[in-house]
Design a protein around this nucleic acid. Structure first.
Length: 338
DNA sequence: AAAGTCTTCAACCGCCGGCGA
DNA sequence: CTCGCCGGCGGTTGAAGACTT
């Protein structure tokens, strides 16, 4: 039954950051003797550390094959894809990223990727769009929205630019989702909750979302919708131009309503049969792109400006992990060949 | 310049499963 | 079968540095 903690206080083992001297002792020992029994290693190596601490230090930091430095865009894409399939299986993800440790990937996910997905309105757990998560204000601020938009016609213009771009810029928001959001907020006949559910489910089908997890991710939308319905009357959609409530613009937009995260070209790389040896099916995968965005800032802005992958191009949902991994290997192979 | 706040990430913790006695 | 050991995993923490006010 259970075992005592590996680092008992009474035996005076050191904790906390490693010193260069300790590192060197560990490296020297492993170079000479290899690593086998972590429990006895520190004693043999002359370290006042527990075996667990030594193993962690070696596998996460001192190992010679550790790759240091920033994650490349390709690595980041891989992490996101694998996470969409495997979830928080950091070691499994790390196994697919040579030189990266599970700890490093976990940290990178929590400090960078997760935040970015949230900002885009993508649930980092399910990888599906969440209307209640998108930081719409940051999207708007980062592009064409400005504070002088209180006139109605201007509002329509902004929204149409959001949907269609303006000739110079690409659209920022998936028009389908924008329609969904608009429709949700403008439809005044929502007494029948069953109908609401049906409407949402239709859009889920559009995203090929299957499974309780994905379905659940939409529930907050409905909750929030009902709250807002109570607070303010909604307008009806006029023609194809969506309209948001005329007052409360800023508050409204900042109230965590999300329109749509931007799926990108990378999705088509993975989902288009012509470029994929094994057609990849993964609607819950969150695809982010751009090979041209390398710095953090560039990545950030690219996330908001990539092309949209139309919902009609999204393949059927059915995870084929082996196919995916096979695809990755083939892709890597050809990347190397090229 | 100083104080306060936020972010990052190395390291720790507790738990689990595999394995041998 | 049970027990104890060990390696490994994922979640969490907190010191240090970066950034903001």
């Amino acid at each position: 039954m259970g075992r005592s903690p590996c680092c008992e206080k009474k035996n005076g083992l050191k904790k906390g950051p490693w010193t260069p001297e300790e590192d060197q002792k560990l490296i020297d020992y492993i170079n000479n003797h290899g690593y086998g029994n972590w429990r006895t290693l520190p004693k043999n190596a002359g370290l006042q550390r527990c075996g667990k601490s030594c193993r962690l230090r070696w596998t996460n930091y001192l190992r010679p094959d550790i790759k240091r430095g920033r994650f490349s865009f390709e690595e980041e894409e891989t992490i996101i894809q694998l996470h969409s399939i495997m979830g928080n299986k950091w070691s499994a993800i790390a196994a697919r990223l040579p030189g990266r440790t599970d700890n490093e990937i976990k940290n990178y996910w929590n400090t960078h990727i997760r935040k970015r997905l949230l900002k885009m309105g993508i649930d980092p757990v399910t990888h599906s769009p969440r209307l209640d998560l998108l930081d719409i204000s940051s999207i708007l601020n980062s592009s064409l929205y400005n504070s002088s938009h209180h006139h109605h016609h201007q509002q329509h213009m902004h929204m149409s630019r959001l949907m269609m771009g303006d000739g110079h810029r690409q659209p920022l928001v998936n028009p389908e989702i924008l329609k969904l959001a608009t429709s949700l907020f403008s439809n005044q006949n929502h007494q029948n909750t069953h109908e609401n559910q049906t409407e949402v489910n239709q859009y889920q089908i559009g995203y090929n979302m299957i499974g309780n997890q994905e379905l659940q991710s939409w529930f907050p939308i409905m909750d929030q919708f009902e709250e807002v319905q109570d607070l303010m009357p909604m307008k009806t959609v006029q023609d194809s131009v969506p309209s948001f409530p005329s007052n409360h613009d800023d508050d409204y937009l900042k109230s965590n309503f999300v329109l749509e995260p931007y799926y990108s070209d990378f999705a088509s790389v993975l989902t288009t049969p012509s470029s994929s040896p094994t057609p990849l099916n993964s609607s819950s995968a969150t695809y982010i792109n751009s090979s041209t965005c390398s710095t953090e800032d560039e990545k950030e802005s690219c996330y908001y400006s990539n092309n949209i992958a139309s919902t009609s191009e999204i393949p059927d949902y059915s995870f084929d992990v082996n196919g995916f991994l096979q695809f990755q290997e083939t892709k890597n192979h050809w990347d190397n060949v090229i």
